[in-house]
Structures are given as structure tokens and as C-alpha cells.
Design a protein around this nucleic acid. Sequence first.
DNA 1: TATGAATGAGATTTCATTCAT
DNA 2: GATGAATGAAATCTCATTCAT
Lengths: 207, 207, 207, 207
Amino acid sequence: MTPAAARGRKGRETDEAFRQAARAVFAREGYLNAKISDIAAEAGRSVASFYNYYETKADLLIALAEEFHAEATQMAALPYRRGLSREDALREAVAGFWRTYAKRRGELIGIFQAAMLDGKFRDRWLKIRAEAISRIAAEIRRAQADGYCPGVDPVLTASALSAMLEHFCYIWLGQGGDRDVQFDDERALDALATIWVKSVYWRPAPA
Amino acid sequence: MTPAAARGRKGRETDEAFRQAARAVFAREGYLNAKISDIAAEAGRSVASFYNYYETKADLLIALAEEFHAEATQMAALPYRRGLSREDALREAVAGFWRTYAKRRGELIGIFQAAMLDGKFRDRWLKIRAEAISRIAAEIRRAQADGYCPGVDPVLTASALSAMLEHFCYIWLGQGGDRDVQFDDERALDALATIWVKSVYWRPAPA
Amino acid sequence: MTPAAARGRKGRETDEAFRQAARAVFAREGYLNAKISDIAAEAGRSVASFYNYYETKADLLIALAEEFHAEATQMAALPYRRGLSREDALREAVAGFWRTYAKRRGELIGIFQAAMLDGKFRDRWLKIRAEAISRIAAEIRRAQADGYCPGVDPVLTASALSAMLEHFCYIWLGQGGDRDVQFDDERALDALATIWVKSVYWRPAPA
Amino acid sequence: MTPAAARGRKGRETDEAFRQAARAVFAREGYLNAKISDIAAEAGRSVASFYNYYETKADLLIALAEEFHAEATQMAALPYRRGLSREDALREAVAGFWRTYAKRRGELIGIFQAAMLDGKFRDRWLKIRAEAISRIAAEIRRAQADGYCPGVDPVLTASALSAMLEHFCYIWLGQGGDRDVQFDDERALDALATIWVKSVYWRPAPA
DNA sequence: TATGAATGAGATTTCATTCAT
DNA sequence: GATGAATGAAATCTCATTCAT
């Protein structure tokens, strides 16, 4: 396998073709059902060529996941840099996350399925997830310093909120949602953000 | 396949052996990695015998999921019948759910993986999930009638809270948790219940 | 296995139930696709019970084939005893054969398929067939003695006519016939009988 | 599966190896008893390789049957183009058929067994057979135009003669013949052709 | 005599992966 | 770099047959 850096133009094009193909195939078939041959066919390349670029399907997914993570992180951090109020920033951060997933359905499905099944991938994803959680936990601690949500465990709360965010995105954006539930992007986002805000930015009733 | 009702003692024993074996194997290997032959070996029966009881691995899981759902529902409903305050009842209901999953790790893992990956199972599980969500949504509407959480969409909020509960359980009880996070049952439960309570039982700030 | 002679009333009833069931199942599914369990289900008996009566599916078919052969032979011989002209007798004999097969579709299908595929059965059926062929050959020799069809090989001709009769019956009565061909019993019989008569009862053109 | 036309030299060789192997195995074991693994072993290829060329054993047989049919049709048509008398042409056509089957015992056995048992194959074969029958029927109608065999149903007669030809070939060339019957190619052919000629080229006795 | 239950022994089929060109 | 072709290694599923009751 030629290292990525050493590739010529043709090589970079083929690599990109495999990435796009994988996103399409994961979105259509799911990660588990996606065969290497499906991805190759979608990319208009041979199966053997795939192995010039990635050792396994999981490796390709890891590459996609890293691209994805960079974007999601940026989207989530952005509002804080814009000087919004904490609540508004949070609402926007959640929205950023949601939109990133909506745009990258292939990665969403791939990452979630693979995290459940593939040991190699799970470890990588846990690291990425840990980063997000520690950022959320820091934000909770900051809120606590201002008198909000005293006594809650910042890390476990962050873990729970993150679990909610991810799984809700997977169900609604990846799987098409719960049965018989009306749905639109705005209302979904609003429900998510409200839970998040209310569960962090509350103050104890005055004695 | 003999219908369950028509089976004699020996048949019922074997069936039970397959169920226990499946729980153990799902817990150990995950649902997708579990081979019929693993389950049969764990049950001390032949693979061919398995097919006298279930048509597929998914069918066996459906049977387990139904048992499981009955128990979880009962555990979650119990506190309300005991006349606790809404908040306390909710806290206990969440705890009941958590404990059921903790006791039935095999089902937890099986259900989660299969709901994400196995079309046949997913449809069945969505039905079960829909029931739970409509019960949660009803509780939210009751809270709204008392002036709590005005304006939130009860069903989407229920969907999000349910997603949180399930995924958090899966991560902590099924997968062993997030990296580097200290964990104990009580604190985890507390984090979950607090989010749930605070995101439903809040009142708008007085104008 | 209790020998047939030693069976009580109940045993004879069960045996008969298996025979009828086999005829129905062979007619419906074909011999090869017929599972012992299908026959047992059709007979309303258990699979294990089947083995009290027959060692294999082929054994049951042999029993049916013998019943069948006795009837077909009788039907074919009858017209000769009634003093019809040779041609008319032949025509009637062919008709008897046809009607027997039509009435016993299960055996027809069973015998044909098994003769092609099951070594054990084939040997038995060849014996039965040999009898029929030698009877036909004798008739041809008698015709030759009267100056008909000089020079033809009586046995090979008998074999060919018998092959025609059997296969034509199988195609039309067993499989439902050739594509797009209009069909009724009388015309089919007439075509068969005419071929048979004309290929035996011809005289050489006078020099 | 690469379409046959798009294959390179190596692919074509392997395909041919599977065809030859199938012919040998069908001739030796019969179609139904032939396992994919037998064919692969005979071809000196792996079982997995088989599936790069055919989806099922039936598909391979269909390919062989089409080759076979093309040859048989040509052999049967040839004598008519040579300007022989009708009777002589017919005799030769039958001989062409017989020789084709003799040369291709594997196909003969495969086609017959599969037509009896395999729904997928039967439909295909019926189409091929229908063609042959309509050609024979046309010949009979031509004979009738010349005053031969008045009143017979051309199509049913064609069906019966075709059934005779095929089944006789199967019994003698595929199964090794009837018991205790002396046999040689010439006599067999003669018996077949005589039946065919006499059953078509007869004129009614003058009133 | 009858049968519920168990199973050994196979055949089919699928795919990720390798290799020679 | 690219790819046609080949394959090892599994897992699923099916049934005839047996046996204890």
C-alpha cells in the first residue's frame, strides 16, 4: 500500500472515489451489509484496487470518521466563539451537530454500526467520543461555577447527553425515525436543545 | 416446528436452555458475532435441534425481547402505583429500567445490535419501542397540564429521552462505558434521572 | 418393522393412510421433493410411525408401483380377452393404460421420477417394465407371423413404443403437457393409438 | 458474475473447464446426485470459482442444453437440405438426433433429470422442446397435404413421437437399456425410424 | 403401536483477500 | 496503479433416521 502522501493525482482521485462510494453505500445498505465489492462497484473501480488504498472496510470508515469528527467539532465550537449567551450557544452547537449528521448520513450510519460491532473501530471511536464528552463536561463545570445544576456529576451527565444526541440522530437521520411520529428538523432540534438546556441550566429551588 | 404451547416437559426444558444460552452468548460475543453453533454449544444441544425451536437467530432474540419488555414495562410502571410523587416515581422508574438491563445484559446487547442491523428484528423492536414512547409522552402531557414544560413536543421529547436511556444503558452496561470515566451504579442512575426530571419538570421563568 | 401379514386392524389402517398420503404428496410435490415429514403430515401420523411400515420412501413407492402395475396389466390385457380385432384391442389397451395413469397421478409421477434417480427403485421398475415389453414384443411377433411389419426388431420396437406411451403419459398427465398445445383426452389417446397401430400393422408395399 | 462476453482468455478456459466437468459428472453420477463440489473437483477448480461463472447447477445445465439444442437442431435439419426423399431424410434426422445424444451423454442425463425435477430448468426446457415439436408438426402437415396420415392431430402426434425419441434415447444411451435386451446402435435406430416413418407416411386403405 | 425430540452428515452459498499480469 | 480471476474458510439450513417413553 502506497502511503497517502506519496500518491500522485490519479491515486488521490481514486481514493476520493472510494470515499464517496463508501458514504453512498453505507447510507444505502448500512455498514454491515456493505460489501467491499459494493463500494468498488459504486466507485467504478475494481475490488483489487480497493486494497491499494485501505486494508479493510473499517480502515476506510476510520478515515471518514476523522474527517467527520473534525467538521462536527468545529461546528459545535463555532457558536461559543461568536459571543452568544450560553443557552443560545448550546442550542446552536446542538444544531451544528444535527446538521453535520444530516449531511453525512453515510458516516453516521457507518460509525454507529461499526462502533457496535468492530472492536478495532470501537476503540478509535471511543477516543473521539471521549474528547467530545470532556468538552461537554467542562461546560457543565463552568455552569456549576455559576450556580447551575449543583451536585450533578459532570462527566456522567455529559456522557448521557452525548448518548442522547448521538442515538437520537441515528434513529431519526439514519433509520428514518420512530413509528407514527410526525417529524420535522426544527421541532426535533428544539426538543433536543430544550432537554439539554433545561438539564444543565437549572438552579435549586431557594430554601 | 412444534408450537410452543404444544411442547412437553423435555421440549420446554430445551427451549429454556436455548434462551439461557443465547443470553450468555450475546453478552459474551455480541449478537452479530454469535453463531447458531455457539448458542447450541452453550446450550449443550445440537445445531439441528436449534431449528426445531426457532427459525433464525432473530426469532430467538424476538422471544427474549418480548420477555424482557414485559419485565421492563412492569418495573417502570410499578413506582407510579405506589403513590410516590411524580419526581420520585420517575426516578424509580428510570432505576427500574436500569436494573432490568443490568440483569439482562444478553438481551440488552442483542436488542441494540439487532435493532441497528437486522431488518427483520428492527421492525419488531420499533413496535415495542413505540409503546414505551407513547407512555412517556402521555406522562409529559400530564406534566404540561400542570404547567410544566410548556411548548415542548411531547412525542419528540419522549423519543429523545428514551434514546438517551437506552443508549446510555448500552454504553455503560453493554459496552463497559466511556474511557477514563469513573462509574458507579448510583451516580449513573442519578445523572440519568436528573436529566429526565429537570427536562420535564421545569416551569417558565415568571415574566 | 412388523411384517405386513402380522398387523392388526389398526396397523392396516395406518399403512393405508401412508399410501394414500404418499399418492397425494407425490402428485402435489413430486417424488423427489416429497419429504417423509410431508407424507406423515398428510397421513396425520408421526414421522417416526412411518418407519414402522417402510424403511425408505422408495420402499413405499415400490409398494404403490406394484399395486399400480397389477391394475395397468389387467386393464391392458382385458380387451384381448373380449375378442376384439387386433387393432381395436390395441386401441383399447392403450386407452386402459392411459386411464390408469390418469387415475393414479401420484404413482405416475413417483414411478417416473424415481426410475430416473433412485438406484434402488430403478432396478425394481426395470423388472416390471421388462414384463410389459416382452408382452408387447410377443404381440409384434404374432403380427409378423401374419405378414405385418416384416424385419423389425420386436423387442426394440416394443421398448420404443413403451417409452413413448410412458413418457407421453408423464408429460401430459403428470406435468400438464407441452406449451401452447391444445389437449383433450380423446385426441391424445387417438394420436397414441394411431402411432402404435400404424407402426405395427403395416405391410410392405408389393414389389 | 462477469458476463460471458467480457471475459478474458483465462476466464473462458475456466468456463469451458466447468462445462466439460459438468458433462462428465452428470454422465457419471446423474444430475441430481451431482454436487457442485464434484463438478469443481472434476474441473480442477475451487467450488468458490464455480460461483463466478454460474449461479446454480441448473444455470450451468441450461448453458449446456442450449449448446446441445443448437447441435441437435442442425443435425436434424441437415438431411432435408441434402435433397433426400422424405423417408430417407427422416431416417437420417432421427439418426442425427441419436448420435448427438450418444456423443453428449452428460447433457442427455442432465436435461432429462432436471426437466423432471427442477422447476427453473423445466420451463426453459419446455420452450426448447416446443420449438422441436412445432417443427415436427409442420412436417406432418406437409405429409398430410400429400395425402398421408389424414385426420391425425399433427401437434399431439409430434409430441408423442418426440416423447418416444427422447425417452428411448434416455433409456438406451443414458441408463444402459432395458433388461435382457440385445442392443446395437443400428438396430435401435432402425426401430425408432421405422416407427416414425410408418406412423406418418401411411395412406388410408382404398375404399 | 405411536410419537416427541434429538442429531449426524452434508450441500449451498457468500466474501474478504490474494496474486499474477 | 489497476484488475480479472481464484479461493479458503465459514455459517446456515435441511432431512432422513434413531431412540426413549
